[in-house]
């Protein structure tokens, strides 16, 4: 894509996204991290826009920046006694290394491969003008089954989430150790 605006937008948005993402790793406060996550999502949405994916960009903002971030905030609130820091685990070193490695692999691949990609006129001719219509057709056309299954997925994710957070009848008086003891005989001689 040669349009200067797009190029600039790409680099700016990329920078914002990458820096924010990296900051999530670096920040020590979990709540700040969630805020930055929202920034990443928004930056992503911007990048999506540069790819002419307007519908997805909107969906990204709605679902990720809106819903999922809120979920994270809820999660933080629902675990009041847990620590709020964004500390590293025992495996921070390997994690960082592996993250770097996979990133490097992808970057190398990206620049190493001679992609079969559209350029110039052909790229301009690929019109992503009415993505919503096409996506809608796709969802109800060839991918209708996936669409239906996704609904089942959502339904049972909902059900699952509810089930998991519902406490069993015996209100929690037991400690972890007692639980552990009982646990050894699941459904056993209680």
């Amino acid at each position: 894509m040669d349009s200067v605006g797009v190029v600039i937008a790409f680099y700016v948005l990329s920078a914002i996204t990458i820096v924010s993402a990296a900051s999530i790793f670096l920040l020590r406060n979990l709540v700040h991290a969630i805020v930055l996550l929202v920034v990443v999502f928004l930056g992503m949405a911007g990048l999506f826009l540069t790819l002419s994916a307007d519908f997805i960009a909107v969906a990204q903002i709605l679902i990720y920046a809106g819903a999922i971030s809120v979920l994270f905030v809820f999660a933080v609130m629902l675990t009041p006694l847990a620590s709020r820091d964004n500390g590293n685990s025992l495996y921070a070193g390997p994690g960082l290394l592996l993250g770097g490695a996979i990133a490097a692999i992808v970057v190398v691949t990206a620049f190493d491969v001679e992609w079969n990609q559209l350029t110039g006129v052909a790229l301009e001719q690929r019109s992503f003008t009415d993505t919503i219509e096409v996506i809608g057709n796709q969802l109800l056309g060839p991918h209708v089954l996936a669409f239906e299954v996704a609904s089942v997925l959502l339904l049972f994710a909902l059900l699952g989430a509810i089930v998991l957070v519902t406490d069993p009848n015996n209100e929690d008086g037991t400690t972890a150790e007692e639980e552990a003891g009982k646990d050894t005989a699941v459904g056993g001689s209680e």
Partner: peptide
């Protein structure tokens, strides 16, 4: 990569 790094190295 950053996502992987975070997923692998944050304890929360």
């Amino acid at each position: 990569g950053i996502g992987v790094a975070i997923a692998l190295s944050k304890r929360n």
